[in-house]
Design a protein around this nucleic acid. Structure first.
Lengths: 226, 226
DNA sequence: TACTCAAATGAATGATCATTCATTCATTAT
DNA sequence: ATAATGAATGAATGATCATTCATTTGAGTA
């Protein structure tokens, strides 16, 4: 099936040769690395999910937002579903990495680590509205999509376990009590993220962090000041 | 509205008379009240959202799950979007009503009210998986759909304000401190709901309630025992 | 300069799904 | 009984959207 007429093709070449710098609005670089293109598309996907929701995000939206053409997703991710999964994985890994960076820092005391984790959980980078929108978009579908659920869980379970260790180091008598407090912290942070996403007029990052410090201070008053 | 084309009608009757073999699989009752039909469809929508997610729920799914025909949604809700909104409203109002029932009970002390609210937030009726799936499905899309956001907010803001009053009655010195603790409670409960939805193997209703009592006990030790 | 080949394009395709409306039929009114 | 009513049906319609692939582009190479 002939896609284009010879006439049209010729016309394009001529235009290009004559007016060297003219009409192709954007000069496309052809040689970005695979990884750069994938990152570019994932960034665009995050933007689109935040603006239009998960169900409202079309391939046309994503590729237009990335400044590329429709077919590009097939080239780098095969299908829309795989692009979405990689997008979730990107956000989840970013979160896990920054948590790990704190948890494994040998220069911080347990109390300083918890303090740093709270600051980090509500830092502009992590609790940026676009990223929050991605988390909750996938959480909302996680019940019917095991793949989404597994990726979300991995992050949450690992951080919860890590926080449990910190609580014991802060002086929790029993493993059970540490679990109660650590699981509570994770839930509290998730709930505050939800507030930041849904009612940004009534909640800001500073207040969310204060609520978390207040939570920790109530259990470990010797280690935290609100 | 033209009732019938005589010609066409005749033709059909003949066909029917010839090949009698119509398949009336299910005898349908015609006379359920408007409200019953709407409730029936909303129930089916909740089921479908829980099983297939918001984006995976089709009109065919909903009407089949309700045991009715495709056209029925147009009759009672006009569009899919309106059905979805009424479904969210249904869940939100159910929650608000049961909260109001406790908050306005004159026979309960403030501490008893808080205790009852915790029990209620994690009772089978409220924190039933299908209902949780509906909440988070809409929260996930709320950033790009103001209508969803408004309905969700209404419930959350009202309960948060009500909890703030209870905290003052329990002995909070300042309005700000009451706000800190009350907003924290709402976030904690939302986060625990998320855990119940996403990691039901690691969280159950009893543990969620225990975490909430632990939270309240840490601020008002004279009123609560974990 | 000419050639090669992988990257990129985007119009066409086909699948899915919400919505419509001519028709059917249970119920109520006469 | 018979007619009138309007709830319910579901095949057909049309819109949206992911995916495909023939063709184009341009960076690297000889």
């Amino acid at each position: 099936m002939p896609r284009k007429s010879a006439v049209k093709s010729r016309a394009k070449s001529e235009a290009g040769a004559t007016a060297t710098v003219s009409p192709p609005a954007t000069r496309k670089r052809r040689s970005a690395s695979k990884e750069q293109r994938r990152a570019q598309l994932i960034k665009a996907t995050i933007r689109c999910i935040a603006r239009k929701g998960l169900s409202g995000t079309t391939m046309a939206d994503v590729t237009r937002s990335a400044g590329l053409s429709m077919g590009i997703v097939n080239l780098h991710f095969q299908t829309k579903e795989k692009l979405l999964i990689e997008t979730l994985r990107f956000v989840a890994e970013e979160y896990k990495n920054s948590w790990d960076g704190i948890a494994s820092d040998p220069d911080l005391s347990p109390a300083e680590k918890v303090q740093a984790i709270i600051e980090q959980d509500f830092s502009p980078g992590i609790s940026q509205p676009d990223k929050l929108a991605v988390w909750f978009a996938f959480w909302g579908e996680s019940r019917s999509r095991p793949t989404y659920r597994n990726i979300c869980n991995e992050a949450d379970l690992q951080t919860s376990a890590s926080m449990q260790t910190l609580c014991r180091q802060l002086g929790c008598k029993s493993r059970q009590r540490a679990e109660l407090i650590a699981t509570g912290y994770t839930a509290l942070a998730d709930g505050l993220w939800l507030d930041l996403l849904v009612t940004p007029d009534d909640m800001d990052r500073a207040m969310a962090a204060r609520i978390c410090r207040n939570y920790m201070a109530s259990f470990f008053p010797e280690h935290f000041k609100v």
